[in-house]
Amino acid sequence: MRILKNSVKDYTWGSSSFIQELMGGRVSFRGPAAELWLGTHPMGPSKIVSEDNEESLEEVINRNPVEFLGKDAARRFPSGLPFLFKVIAAAKPLSIQVHPDRLRAREGFHRENAAGIPLGSPLRSYRDESHKPELLCALSEFHALKGFRPAGEAWALLRDLDVELGEVESFSTAKFFRNLLSMDQGAVSALLHRVSGAAKERAGTDAAIGWVFKLGLQYPDDPGCLAPVLLNLISLRPQEALYVSPGEIHAYLEGAAVEVMANSDNVIRGGLTAKRIDRTELMEALNVEEKPCSVMVPVAVGSCEMQYRAQAEEFMLSIIEVDGAHAYRSAEKRNIEVYLCTCGSGKITEAQQGCSLPFERGDSFVVPAFIASYSLTGTGKLFKVTIPSIQP
């Protein structure tokens, strides 16, 4: 069991308090703290901390990947830890975006390398070769957009905003969105000027129209302001979750959450940001399916653990809750696990040697696969990410 020291990202949309309070003084920021990264991604790698030393988590894994990741995981993921674990705290909306599938990520990464664009350049959309499925689990009330609304819903909301449309039978949400992103700026500005008055007048009648009004104040000439009536608007309560597949359009609007994804920082943006926008690439990567969005809830797998059953081979997210009467006991055979404590305190104790490590709110630690079994005691809540095993 090893304590982790993690990277914090100070993106402008971040909160001035959430991550700072979670970490309890472990990070010091005068400005916003948007994301806390736990993992080995080169843009924000974690370190293992001992009493007198700090060492890269990636280097420790690479020295003995079978013992650290697990035999099955090391065979399936020879490049190392396949997931990136985050806390995000959004005080302002994030961009409208999609993440690429494997083929597009590989092609885009090599294309930008061949063009000589530095890895850390803001002109990049592809910072690695990985696809990026992701799972977001709310820590607070969390508002998000995900996937295209059914045509009838979007058509009715656009009509409420005084947008001139044909008959609903011929309307397509995805096609309207594509046309919107393809319009010249003059036409976009004229459309948004007409919409803004209706959005202000009717902001209190529908949550999606309320978000159109809010976004219009921040990005008055951005076609992404209409996204809340074109995409499914979801409000998550704590512990409710969303799974986002590659190619699925989404935007996170407000709130704090745990997020786990394939070990990638690839983002193709379409609006609502000062960062690089590549609408042509976004439309090529886009899944245009129009359907309602479902919310995930965890499934109990024991007295202390609840799991989120996402369709991802790289990661599985769980919540572990312990109290004085109930301790969590791990399986004897498992892959690497990364923990973050979000509430309370306790200790983790190795079963064979009896070695223990205390933890409290804001602490994160890694449990290598070679530790056969362990227990968690105390009173608190922890999020655990592991690599799901593939049964033979």
Rank of each mutant, 00 (worst) to 15 (best):
I3V: 13
S7N: 09
I19E: 03
Q20Y: 02
E21T: 05
L22T: 01
R26K: 14
R30V: 11
G31H: 08
G31N: 08
A34D: 00
A34C: 05
L36I: 03
W37Y: 06
S46Y: 04
P65S: 06
F68G: 03
L69H: 00
K71S: 14
D72S: 13
D72C: 04
A74H: 04
S79M: 11
L81D: 02
F83A: 00
F85G: 03
V87Q: 00
V87K: 02
Q97C: 01
P100K: 04
G108N: 00
N113E: 14
A115K: 14
L119W: 02
G120F: 10
S125H: 08
A138G: 13
F142L: 12
P150E: 13
G152E: 15
A156F: 11
R159E: 14
E164C: 12
E164D: 15
V168N: 11
E169N: 14
F171Y: 09
S172D: 11
A174E: 06
M183W: 14
M183Q: 15
L191K: 08
A198R: 08
A199N: 02
K200H: 10
R202D: 01
T205M: 10
G216A: 05
P220W: 11
G224S: 08
G224M: 08
P228M: 10
R237D: 14
Q239T: 15
L242G: 07
L242D: 06
G247I: 08
H250E: 08
A251C: 14
L253W: 07
A256R: 05
A257W: 04
V267L: 07
R269G: 03
T273S: 12
A274Q: 13
A274Y: 12
K275S: 03
R276K: 15
N287P: 00
E289R: 13
V297P: 01
G302D: 09
S303W: 09
E305I: 07
Y308L: 02
Y308W: 06
R309W: 02
R309H: 10
E313V: 10
L317Y: 01
L317S: 00
D323V: 02
H326P: 00
A331K: 13
A331D: 12
E337L: 07
Y339M: 12
L340S: 01
C341Y: 02
T342R: 08
T342V: 15
K347E: 13
I348D: 03
Q353F: 13
G354V: 10
S356T: 12
L357G: 10
V367C: 14
S373V: 10
T379N: 14
S389N: 12
